[in-house]
């Protein structure tokens, strides 16, 4: 029969249409503007309408979600901030569109680079959110953020983020990426333990040597 295909197709549309209302009744009052409702609408059991009413509703962000990077600082016991960044320049080298600029200084006394950047800029108009800087930074100093609502009225200056604008405390990182943070903390703790061990061994060796030297002198 001509038109059977259309009717069959209309049946599918009707099903979708009805399901929306059935789901509304089933989830009475909890389908919209509630985290569990939003989660349900983007799960495998989602039926009927599935659009999310941004900005009133927002999709939950998975931990790995990445947007413009930020710099991490640790808060020391005396309340001062210590940048984790050592201005080693690896993120500059791996950044595909070359949107990171770092100003490094040298200590005038020793002539060696100071392990903290004087300035750190990211041109967020150019940043392609690739995540390489975070992936390849050896000091866990730069990480990808979850904050994606960055629209502004000005583009010439506001979109070049400086160190101040980029820096966020380590606790913030622990809240946006708890799993990753824990893993990295563990690795860092292990490294620190190893380092302490090595230093202790070195000190012991030095002490031994000193003792040996003394006995040598004595003979």
């Amino acid at each position: 029969m001509y038109g059977k295909g259309i009717i069959k197709g209309m049946g599918v549309t009707l099903k979708h249409f009805v399901q929306t209302y059935v789901e509304d009744i089933k989830w009475f009052g909890r389908r919209y503007y509630k985290p569990e409702g939003i989660a349900h609408r983007s799960s495998k059991d989602a039926k009927g309408i599935f659009t999310v009413q941004y900005p009133e509703e927002k999709l939950p962000m998975p931990e790995e979600f990445r947007f413009i990077p930020f710099l991490i600082y640790d808060v020391l016991e005396d309340g001062t901030h210590k940048d984790r960044c050592t201005s080693c320049g690896i993120c500059v080298k791996v950044c595909p569109p070359q949107c990171i600029w770092i100003e490094q200084t040298t200590n005038p006394d020793t002539g060696r680079p100071v392990p903290e950047p004087v300035e750190f800029y990211i041109d967020i108009d150019i940043c392609m959110n690739c995540g390489y800087c975070a992936e390849y930074c050896p000091f866990d100093a730069i990480k990808m953020d979850h904050d994606y609502e960055l629209a502004s009225y000005e583009r010439q200056f506001d979109h070049i983020f400086n160190k101040e604008r980029l820096s966020k405390p380590a606790e913030y990182y622990a809240t946006v990426r708890p799993v990753n943070n824990q893993l990295e903390e563990a690795v860092r703790a292990e490294k620190a333990a190893k380092k302490a061990e090595r230093e202790a061994a070195k000190a012991a060796k030095a002490a031994e040597k000193d003792a040996g030297g003394e006995s040598d002198n004595g003979s």
Partner: peptide
């Protein structure tokens, strides 16, 4: 044109930002 290949040398260690 900035440089033939990346990474560009003006980005680090004395990064001067410009567009």
């Amino acid at each position: 044109h900035n440089e033939d290949t990346k990474p560009f040398s003006n980005r680090w260690p004395d990064g001067q930002i410009f567009r």
